[in-house]
Amino acid sequence: MNKTRLDSLPALALFALIVQYGSLSSAAQHSGLSRSAVSKQLSALEAKLGVRLLQRSTRSITLTEAGKQILAEARRILDALESVKTLSEDLQGEVCGHLKVSCSTGIGRVHVVPLLKQFRVCYPKVNVQLLLEDRRVDLIDEQIDVAIRVGHLPDSSLIALRLGEMTWVVCASPDYLRINGTPKTPTDLLQHDCLYYSNNQNSFKTWLFMGPNGEESISINGSLSLNDSTALAQAAEEGQGIVWIDKNSLGDALEKGRLVPVLEDYSLSPGYPIYALYPARRHLSQKTRMFVNFLSERFSPRMHYQ
């Protein structure tokens, strides 16, 4: 391979980054270059190849036909460079490097944060960045090594490892029940202030029960919603209402009597599965492999109510 071809490799990888992140500015941010340097390298690559790769405006970039064809090769180069980086870490003979993990806030606080202490003792040269956020992240675009997600997954190229399952309970504080009464049937919930989970995408206001009369779906009333299960549990302990929640988010509140289960004669809808997701790559880094194995071994035992 001659020098001219070698010189084109970083520029091709940079071109793939521009398309991946949607702008020259974002590509500059993720590559550690200035925007002008990114623009200069792109222009030099287009001049060398003799074709325009992108149509650029002040608001957007669009692939040309030539750009679409060359992008596939550029992405292969970017993947190869990522594999080389991963191999270089692994060849050092110990598990090391930067591990970026995404997780929902509630699951992260209750299950992942306590496990990180143990993981870091086992692998002290891995720097863990844990992002707690209640949204779906794009693992590839956001360079996430592992995402922990709740719910049934759409088909994708990601590898999914099932870690456990949420287990529901409907409960309230003794003080709330003393003042407001204890519901005997799901319909009684319509007379109560119910706390529920809500974020920008979903509001969990329909509670499903199975009882002697079959399935009952209740659209609850509530003046308080939160997007964090830990905060929901706290609000319930403070007597602010009745909550439908994952038992694993409650700590020892049920055992210590700070919260009391209600409607125990009814079965609740099945809990959501919890998965660890990671990209399907030809060479999975040691740090990612060890973290996923660690979760597989130690996540479920923390879920006391399975």
Rank of each mutant, 00 (worst) to 15 (best):
L131W: 09
D134R: 09
D134N: 13
D134G: 05
R135D: 01
R135T: 11
R136W: 11
V137E: 03
D138I: 08
D138K: 08
I140F: 13
D141Y: 05
D141E: 12
Q143M: 10
D145E: 12
D145H: 13
V146A: 07
I148W: 06
I148D: 11
V150C: 11
G151Y: 12
L153K: 01
S156R: 13
L158A: 05
L158T: 03
R162C: 14
L163H: 01
G164M: 02
C171K: 01
S173R: 14
D175W: 07
R178F: 12
R178S: 13
T182R: 13
T182M: 07
T182W: 02
K184G: 12
T185I: 06
P186A: 04
D188Q: 00
L189R: 03
L189H: 03
H192V: 02
H192A: 08
D193L: 06
D193R: 15
C194V: 06
L195K: 07
N200R: 14
Q201A: 15
N202R: 14
F204R: 10
T206E: 14
T206I: 14
T206H: 09
F209W: 00
N213L: 05
E216W: 04
S217M: 15
S217N: 09
I220Y: 04
G222L: 04
S223N: 11
S225R: 05
L226M: 10
S229T: 13
Q234V: 05
E238N: 15
G239M: 04
G239Q: 04
I242L: 02
W244V: 11
W244H: 15
I245S: 00
D246H: 13
N248V: 14
N248F: 11
S249Q: 13
D252A: 03
A253Q: 06
